[in-house]
């Protein structure tokens, strides 16, 4: 049975120069494991804030967030161990090689097979020849592939990606998108992508469009997936 995240009647606002700014009002949505989602909208619409609320890293002003796993409902705090992140700036640790960057979450969990698994994942993302290179020796696209491998290596149920192709050229962006969607599907991980790119957004099964505190949802049934 697939796990899912549910946001019920979520409102989120903050104070800016003594003025209340409302990002969302009475928002209801669900994120299901194994499905892909894109959050789009203009700058300042609250895309990243929505991502933070979904991942349980931020508390909504009002409303409730739930994480349902194996039929058991829990607060979003329980989600922490089952999620991975991918960032626009990659955020690899500069002093570690690609292999050690990917092995990092496994080592933290005390996985004795950390290096083997990391090697396997780097091969999956097409970097078997760059295993011992440090981030400064990799291109932007290659760094993001390492970041994807790092996010998926510990097999999380959900992946949250913030503008994962924002720093890449079109060719690299397409490659990264292919890998990201394929790997998530292969791992049966739910994928939530924040993006300005319509091309990337259109690859997701569901699209949330944010504007002026309102959102609209568009769902597509078919998803083309390349090999991971």
């Amino acid at each position: 049975m697939s796990s899912y995240i549910e946001l019920k009647n979520i409102s989120h606002s903050f104070q800016l120069n003594q003025e209340k700014v409302t990002l969302f009002d009475e928002l209801n949505l669900s994120i299901v494991q194994g499905q892909s989602y894109a959050i789009t909208g203009p700058s300042g619409a609250g895309k990243s804030s929505l991502l933070m609320l979904m991942s349980g890293l931020e508390q909504p002003t009002t409303g409730q967030g739930l994480y349902v796993k194996a039929g058991q409902s829990a607060s979003l705090d329980a989600l922490r161990a089952d999620i991975g992140f991918i960032f626009q700036q990659f955020h690899l640790l500069a002093e570690l090689t690609a292999l050690n960057n990917v092995a990092l979450p496994l080592k933290l969990r005390g996985d004795k097979q950390a290096l083997e698994k990391a090697r396997t994942w780097l091969t999956k993302v097409g970097l078997s020849h760059r295993i011992n290179h440090k981030p400064s020796e990799l291109s932007g696209g290659e760094q993001q592939r390492v970041a994807i491998a790092r996010a998926l290596v510990f097999e999380p149920s959900f992946i949250f990606a913030d503008e994962p192709t924002g720093n890449l050229d079109q060719t690299s962006a397409t490659e990264i998108a292919d890998i990201l969607f394929a790997c998530c599907q292969e791992n049966n991980a739910g994928l939530v992508v924040v993006t300005h790119s319509d091309i990337l957004a259109n690859r997701a099964q569901h699209i949330f469009s944010l504007a002026d505190g309102q959102y609209s949802q568009q769902s597509k049934q078919a998803l083309q997936v390349a090999a991971c």
Binding site: R80, A81, D82, F85, H91, L93, L104, L108, F154
Partner: peptide, 16 residues
């Protein structure tokens, strides 16, 4: 700055 980044990354792996 490096420590901060390391801690943030560790947290992004689902740690508190």
């Amino acid at each position: 700055s490096r420590e901060m980044k390391k801690n943030s990354i560790v947290m992004s792996f689902g740690f508190s």
